[in-house]
Nucleic acid binder design. Structure first.
Lengths: 306, 306
DNA sequence: TCACATTTGAAAGATATTTTCAACCGGGTT
DNA sequence: AACCCGGTTGAAAATATCTTTCAAATGTGA
């Protein structure tokens, strides 16, 4: 079963995948075995160098076997090593043209504040690029279609993800949709029971294995609602109950920069895309609703002096 | 003899040859035999397509044989077809990236979903860059210093900004600080009254003129707390009561992409910088506190099958 | 500790690439 | 016209590379 999962994922996911390789490696790393991780690491670390190697060469370099190299290539979404190698060559050429960034280092305890700003901004930009590159637009399109016509939309998220959920709910509400974000796991389940076909349930969890979020999604799934998972682990338990999976990217984290930070950025981008997609589809009603909500808030602001 | 000439020419000329492939084909065409020219033509005309073909495939496509394809590759300066193919893949990726600055336009109602993703990601990246560039590190440093030693931290934000406030409060709490985000304007004021010198109050408002947020900040300011404003309008009313002003950037907005989206991104970056800065300053206590909070959450996740 | 599932690499099997070599072509010579 | 000959070409053998198989090794939970 586990194997089936992996298989279907790798084949269904990406056809050739151009630039998002480093991101994909990070996303899939947790579901890799130790030796596969070594291979993936080598590939992500030096695409150009690896492109020059044969299976055997790469196997020796990483201290593994040909079979493992091929397995890794498969997991990354290529039919075999040959194709991964071609992609690597492309990637190498690609990144040769873009010049090297200077602030790629981790944030250190004694970094001056200006460096912190620069590094953080850079990292988040990177996260956005990775997310955009790795987002499956077919899944996204399907999710948009479901949300746009939903009778009601329930959103589940706890911890940092709950803020993302609230953000989505706020925005959905602004264009006239009935959307609620649930933080309390009990209430979430209670509400999920009310869902039925034509409704949409969205679970947001970076780890893909947060029980408090999986449970309500499972209930919604069982009830026949269309379920969407926004997660950084496309092979995590949450996807079992998800009709559509939107993958967020995982950036490298350091002691001072917890993963929550980049996962939040990634999740927000996905959520924004979802929102815009829905707004496009419901433009007739969305546009006036948005305008109205602006207007309604105007009186809460003092006109600036001057 | 002729062969010797060719050989020496091709090997001496170029090692792998990066982009100038089309030119090289033209240069060498006269010294090629008829069937080699067919191969070279195909390669120069559609690098991407040819990169997907095996020797046999390319031989069939050009109506020649494998041997001819290999000969052509050699003539072009590669050790064999395999290497030519890698170069082609690189070339294809390269010229693909050349044409892509078309995503700077506004998001339109009829944009395909893939464009939405690209544009949105690009816009948010832009927002991050702008914010980082415009952030006053002196003000930020002062704000960090105040927050790091604060007895308690109160945060005010309503609407979309409230989520940013909550995010900050969550993170502050994770490193052992006493931080609360207030959404209810009445409660915010009620709490602000309790503040005194040594406390910190942070107001988050994009417009800089949200009364519900200004009011509690004013109270905190009057009470002697150190006040910080995170706003997109450094000349707005809120800054009257702010000891330190952190400026977020304002990106252009369109009908489908409300300003709230980019202001949120910008605010989050500022908030992250603030957080990291504080974490640096309180590293001794922050690091173990962060680690502990991870640990505490572990049991809320089901270990993935595998 | 044992039973079980997963991970791993050696070697067999399948493909792709390279090399070899004989047939072929075209033009100049007898 | 027939013949010869250097150069060109592709079929097939030889080699390299990639993929699959399978049993041993490793780890994991009872």
């Amino acid at each position: 079963m586990t194997n089936d999962l992996k298989e279907s994922f790798s084949t269904a996911d990406s056809p050739p995948a151009p630039a998002a390789l480093a991101a994909k490696v990070r996303t899939l790393a947790p579901s890799m075995t130790r030796s596969m991780q070594r291979v993936a690491e080598a590939v992500a670390g030096d695409p150009a160098g690896c492109a020059a190697l044969t299976v055997t060469g790469l196997a020796e370099l990483t201290g593994t076997s040909e079979a493992t190299v091929v397995r890794t290539a498969r997991l990354l979404g290529y039919p075999g090593y040959r194709d991964l190698r071609l992609a690597l060559a492309g990637l190498a050429a690609h990144q040769q043209s873009g010049r090297a960034p200077s602030v790629t280092a981790d944030i250190a305890v004694d970094d001056p504040i200006a460096d912190v700003v620069a590094k953080l901004a850079y990292d988040e930009q990177q996260t956005l690029a990775d997310t955009a590159a790795g987002l499956d637009t077919v899944q996204l399109g399907a999710a948009v279609a479901a949300a746009a016509t939903a009778r009601r939309i329930d959103i589940y998220g706890v911890g940092a993800s709950s803020l993302v959920g609230q953000d989505l709910a706020q925005k959905m509400a602004r264009i006239g949709l009935i959307a609620h974000s649930h933080t309390d796991p009990h209430l979430a389940v209670t509400n999920a029971v009310q869902l039925r076909s034509g409704d949409v349930a969205i679970a947001i969890t970076h780890s893909g294995s947060t029980d408090d979020v999986i449970e309500p999604l499972r209930v919604a799934f069982d009830r026949g609602a269309t379920t969407i998972a926004i997660t950084g682990r496309p092979d995590g338990p949450v996807t079992q109950y998800a009709d559509h999976v939107l993958t967020t990217s995982t950036a490298r984290e350091s002691e001072l920069r917890p993963a929550a930070m980049s996962s939040r950025t990634s999740q927000l981008l996905v959520v924004d895309c979802l929102f815009i997609g829905v707004a496009q589809r419901t433009y007739e009603t969305a546009a006036p609703a948005l305008a109205a909500s602006y207007e309604a808030l105007a009186h809460r602001h003092t006109p600036r002096p001057r």
